[in-house]
Design a protein around this nucleic acid. Structure first.
Lengths: 358, 358
DNA sequence: TTGAAAGCGATACCAG
DNA sequence: CTGGTATCGCTTTCAA
């Protein structure tokens, strides 16, 4: 058969074996690279395989070995630069370790996350990396570990049970920036996040389902309280899910009579929108308003003024999660590990001393 | 068995059948949702499945059906906002159509791309979406269609053989922006791209392996020539792969004696670096230098001045590629289709009349 | 070192 | 409507 002709039906080990004049088992041994075979036979089989353009069927292999060579990844939204960069870290490590990656977006929706995990288990992934949408609803994650598959959590931890977790030191980072703002004389600081509650009101950190954000808010609150500052719970504004909502929140905030002199944005998408809004309103950064954003997105360096940010080691977060998972896949069986990566405070020009308000 | 207990060995149709007191075939029919069964039996099997916490094994299913329910996607770099957004379009369509997505990064390297495709075929993906690193080296893509699997090309076409292709109207877009600059009096316009040749010198569009960029350059060149402008080939600068290289190119260009009065950046990463560099050098945009960038990245709207860009329908590019592929997967067998999506010229404030140079 | 044969977990055809 | 059985392509004992 012409090797270039469209190959409708795939050639199997049996075909190669026949052509090479050996048994199926022997052909499989050289094709699969296991067991021992004589050089003469190896050459014959290899030649036959090449002639027939043999392509191994990984599905069949997985059936018998029980390992699929794939890891499943569930993230909120691959379009988000945070996740796409973390994903790059994951895929790099995975490929190097010989694994392939199946990606599913949850859209930060728990039921979609559950469906995703079901699908991945059905596909018999060897392990999973998940960035859980909610820390309070984790039965499906428990099932994963129950199924015997290793699980690594990305950016958001679940204290409830023992799995490998990789997060950044969000709490300390939040404490640091808050302290900084307070030192500059700010007495009313707003914190904007995409997280939300049914009635859009913040009461306690327990209301926050996203671990990274909850830790930041805890740090923010405790630092404000230590400094004896006002009704800090009311300074936390939720529901900045899409730019339009963020804009509305920012407008209400900045045009109100008791406006904050500083804003902490929980991610770069929010930071960008706050930046735009304050400009639209005519407030000057940093003179009228100080702004600090989490996530060192590329645009933060080119605005006027450039934005002071908390740089998270996003690529490394993904890399480490994959590394921990691969270790498990290779047999490591110790207790769940929690890795906390350091953030970095990048000082630029969007914060200054608090203005003296009327 | 306690349903919460770690389930080391997976339960199969045979187990469910036994528990329900029916044959394997019958249990498989209700579990797989095919064939016909009586209500009584259906209930019994369903109950047994639930009690045993049965999880279907998609691998086994794929073995017999020959369909894996997965599509493979090979992109240059998922970290790049262009690809991550396109990927979002792909995954959205795929999920809705009941497919799952395996993602592999090629790093714009052809040999990695080849390996990726081998892997994906071994995993028996039902179809592939590829953004080919080089248009001149496509034997492996030919093999894909030879294997009987549908293939869709993203952002970069291969005229050589018939597959579905989705691109943007890069050529017209480039013509448009070039015409605009010429109308504003610019007589020396530079084009910066990440594409490269061994000696870093541009000679003909044939040197450009990335289809989208080649088409833009063709449009740029022909428009300049029509206007009777200078040594246009020398206005094309290659090798702006990483920010550092881009900076060097931009510095050399802007500090040279015959400096261009306008720059077209082939993507937003390059545009960002040109913006930074011109500011560092002390050239004012748009008075000293006009800048137009491809890709409407989010930062382009918040700089001072905001940057004029060519907006590409990136999400839709991915969406459409997936849509075409899914159609094939559902049996469509017509000839290869080429879909060209419209770009949009977003006029902001980074271009103006050419300055009168000394 | 090699071969025969038994799975892996589903689907699908053919009888009954 | 239900059951028996061959089959998918590969791995993996177990003997020879």
């Amino acid at each position: 058969m012409n090797p270039n002709s469209p190959q409708t039906v795939s050639v199997t080990v049996a075909d190669v074996a026949r052509k090479a004049g050996v048994s199926k088992a022997t052909a499989a041994r050289v094709l699969g690279g296991y067991g021992t075979v004589s050089d003469r036979v190896r050459d014959a089989v290899t030649a036959a395989a090449r002639a027939l353009d043999y392509r191994p069927n990984e599905l069949a292999r997985s059936m018998t070995t029980g390992r699929s060579g794939t890891i499943g990844v569930v993230v909120g939204d691959i379009e988000n630069p945070f996740f796409s960069l973390a994903m790059r870290g994951i895929t790099d490590v995975a490929r190097q370790a010989g694994f392939t990656v199946i990606l599913i977006n949850s859209g930060e929706d728990v039921s979609a996350e559950k469906a995703a995990i079901r699908t991945l288990i059905a596909k018999r992934v060897d392990g999973l990396i998940v960035s859980p949408a909610k820390e309070t609803d984790v039965e499906h994650l428990r099932e994963v570990v129950g199924s015997g598959r290793p699980l690594a959590l990305l950016d958001r931890g679940i204290n409830a049970f023992e799995v490998d977790t990789v997060i950044a030191d969000d709490r300390q980072a939040a404490e640091g920036v808050t302290r900084q703002l307070i030192a500059l004389g700010h007495r009313h600081i707003a914190y904007l996040t995409a997280c939300d509650t049914p009635d859009h009101l913040f009461r306690t950190p327990g209301d926050i389902n996203t671990g990274s954000v909850r830790r930041r808010i805890e740090g923010f609150l405790s630092t404000c309280r230590e400094a004896g500052l006002g009704p800090v719970e009311r300074w936390i504004h939720m529901g900045a899910v899409i730019p339009e909502q963020t804009r509305q929140i920012a407008e209400r905030l900045l045009e109100g009579k008791d406006r904050p002199t500083a804003i902490i944005a929980s991610d770069s998408v929010i930071g960008l929108e706050v930046f735009k809004t304050s400009r639209a309103i005519g407030l000057a950064i940093p003179d009228d308003l100080s702004l600090i954003s989490f996530h060192d997105a590329d645009w933060t360096a080119v605005t006027s003024p450039p934005v002071t940010v908390v740089r998270q080691p996003v690529y490394q977060l993904g890399e480490m999660a994959a590394r921990l998972l691969v270790e498990r896949l290779n047999g490591f069986a110790g207790p769940g590990r929690e890795v906390v990566l350091q953030t970095e405070f990048v000082e630029r020009a969007s914060i200054s001393s608090a203005p003296t308000l009327p």
